[in-house]
Amino acid sequence: MANDYPQGVDMAAAIAAGFILDRREAVPKLIGRHEDFLFVTGLAGTARDIAALTRDGAHIYTMAGAMGGACMIGLGLALARPDKRVLVATGDGELLMNLGALATIAVLNPANLAILCVDNGHYGETGYQKSHTSLGVDLEKIAAGSGIKRARTIAGEAELADGGRMLREGNGTAFIVLKVKPDDPPPFKRNMDPASCRTRFRGALLGTG
């Protein structure tokens, strides 16, 4: 199956660097019951991960542009709805585009917000160019240094159950880096119209458009 890897990816090097898990298996296992969360996702990879997991449910808001906004959309939603658990699922590239958001979130530290960074060390959507996380940048340390106290990296199967609990519990924002192989996300086709997705999300949550 080695020949099935995306063109240009040095999979042996990625695996040697700890990018081992298969995102198509690890993301659903880590999240568990998806109905427990309202989701905001990044572009491309994580949008497909979560759309496939929920069958493009009304409790998800996926992005396909405005890169760098996922964590802050999640913060706005978490502050507006302290009665709900909000899970931001985004990629390393999307997160790297606005690292200041981690500082802004850490200052407020809402307990109903969790951030899951599905880190494959690459920009998968644009041809698998290496991202900074393949070149020595550690997002867990950046989150911790920003002041997010509950930050950890998960790179192995055995840690997924702990991660699932971390997303649901605790007295402050949780931040998990899930290291995965630089391989394609599920080929799920989701609704990419941001306006109809807004109407769908608000309709389900608020009973209004």
Binding site: V40, A66, G68, G69, M72, L77, A78, A80, R202
Partner: peptide, 9 residues
């Protein structure tokens, strides 16, 4: 982005 998220909620 924050204001968009607030509107979703």
């Amino acid at each position: 982005a924050l204001l968009a998220g607030a509107d979703l909620g």
